[in-house]
Design a protein around this nucleic acid. Structure first.
Length: 485
DNA sequence: AAAAAAC
């Protein structure tokens, strides 16, 4: 389905064109018409399915079609992390290039737009406020806001925000807005609390479900079953030659992210850490360096596991197994974006087998196990305990087969430590998605690949849009996106 | 069992 069929305005269509959007994704197909009808909407959709554009486009259309009540804030968007808020703002900047619509980001961290600047946006009326909950509440508590003209209230990643304990804050924000408004909620899952929230802040919402709680099929998933002490050796093996693609290494704790980054830096990898202990300006600098290929490897907590959309990440490594299956899907969803392919490799230590097995159960299939690289010795057998598996567990039989289930064949290979088998399965990490695999390819200092060049020019294009836009459509309020770059 | 978000 193409965007023409939605009946979007000429300006929005031009914005789409500038952003190089052509085909609508399934989420967009289902939600855009509902939003244009001015109905409340609750949409169950994964990140990476184009859901940001699914509300930005109709919102821009509505904002330009119906005049607002003067210089007041007309739309509030709330998102769980600062990075996501920034990214949403970026998208607005691109799509609204041909429209006189201003945005302001209201989030914590001290950087970006200052408190005073945010206050101006909230009172003098940027058309659209994109906020993280904590900071928005702060402004609300001090009455730094004029929400009397708000017509649209949008919650992005609503389930995530509830996980973070923002239920009351979101209710409070909702209650501070005019009752006569359109409320739109996107959520990756639909737990009871989300339904309850919807009931409280929405009015007869249309429900759309495009939740593919499945990873993108373009992701080549695999895992190393290993001992904790072997993990660094695997990293060294994976990066023994340039991969030619950006990599994110996820770890579940800040401490481990820091340690890992330190270790990799000592080994001269071009690496940086990303976690919430960094000052906000540093967080932004790191993300920018990663986007611009100044850094090859980003070691990160789950702060960027959701929603973050960076092109040309060909490889995601889970240095440890994420705590729950949803996290896994989000993490690996950072690769294989926009029709690209990608590789996701998970390191499963002896203690993490149970967690990993839960992920496999959730997915409904086994994830291929890689043989450990030469020289690292044998790994453990993959024989996850079948917790709450009840009868599957069988008295005492677990260790010799009960736990292996459908994966029996692979595990047996491993147990035997059959060298031939190992060499057959062993392969470079990203052979599938890059020229990376070219064995002797020179260090990529000078030579950037086509994808990287494309990325650069697209960045340049965006910068241009922004610049011209703020010249032409600056109404003295808070111009969009200056917190970027 | 961890991370995120406000000062």
């Amino acid at each position: 389905m193409t965007f023409e069929e939605f009946g979007l305005s000429e300006e929005v269509m031009q914005g789409l064109d500038a952003m190089n959007f052509q085909e609508a994704t399934p989420v967009q197909e289902q939600t855009i018409p509902v939003i244009l009808q001015r109905r409340d909407l609750i949409a169950c959709a994964q990140t990476g399915t184009g859901k940001t554009a699914a509300y930005i486009l109709p919102l821009l259309n509505l904002l330009s079609e119906y005049p607002g009540s003067g210089d007041k804030v007309r739309a509030i968007i709330v998102a769980p992390t600062r990075e996501l808020a920034q990214q949403i703002d970026m998208q607005f900047a691109g799509f609204s290039y041909f429209l006189p619509i201003s945005t302001a980001v209201v989030s914590g961290g001290g950087d970006g737009s200052s408190w005073e600047q945010q206050k101006r946006g909230l009172t003098l009326g940027a058309d659209i406020i994109i906020a993280t909950p904590g900071r928005l509440i702060s402004h609300l508590n001090i009455s730094n806001v004029d929400f009397s003209g708000v017509e649209y209230f949008i919650l992005d990643e609503a389930d995530r925000m509830l996980d973070m304990g923002f239920y009351d804050d979101i209710m409070k924000i909702g209650n501070s807005l005019p009752a006569k408004r359109q409320t739109i909620m996107f959520s990756a899952t639909m737990p009871p609390k989300i339904r309850q929230l919807a009931k409280n802040i929405m009015n007869d919402p249309v429900e759309v479900n495009v939740a593919i709680s499945k990873p993108n099929e373009a992701i080549d998933q695999s895992a190393y079953v290993c001992y904790e002490t072997q993990k660094m050796g695997i990293i060294d093996w994976l990066f023994r030659e340039p991969t030619g693609t950006k990599t994110i290494i996820f770890s579940s704790s800040k401490q481990k992210v820091k340690e890992l980054t330190f270790a990799l830096k000592r080994k001269k990898y071009k690496v940086a850490a990303m976690h919430s202990d960094l000052e906000q300006p540093e967080r932004e600098a790191v993300m920018l360096d990663f986007k611009n290929n100044k850094i090859d490897i980003l070691v990160a907590t789950d702060v960027i596991s959701r929603g973050i959309d960076i092109d040309q990440i060909g490889l995601v490594i889970n240095y440890d197994v994420p705590h729950d299956p949803e996290d896994y899907i989000h993490r690996i969803g950072r690769t294989a974006r926009a029709n690209a392919e990608g590789t996701a490799i998970t390191f499963v230590s002896e203690k993490e087998q149970g967690k990993f097995h839960r992920i496999e159960s959730f997915l409904g299939y086994e994830i291929a196990k890689r043989e450990l690289p030469e020289g690292l010795g044998e790994g453990p057998v993959y024989a996850p305990a079948q917790e709450n598996g009840g009868r599957r567990r069988g008295r005492g039989g677990r260790n010799n087969g009960g736990g292996e289930g459908r994966n029996g064949g692979r595990s047996r290979n491993r147990r035997r430590g059959d060298k031939g088998a190992r060499e057959n399965v062993s392969k470079p990490p990203s052979a599938k998605n890059t020229k990376a695999a070219a064995p002797e390819s020179p260090k990529k200092e000078g030579g950037e690949n086509v994808a990287q060049q494309a990325q650069k020019s697209s960045n340049a294009r965006r910068r241009n849009h922004r610049r011209r836009r703020s010249r032409s459509s600056n109404n003295g309020n808070t111009p969009s996106g200056q917190s970027e770059q």
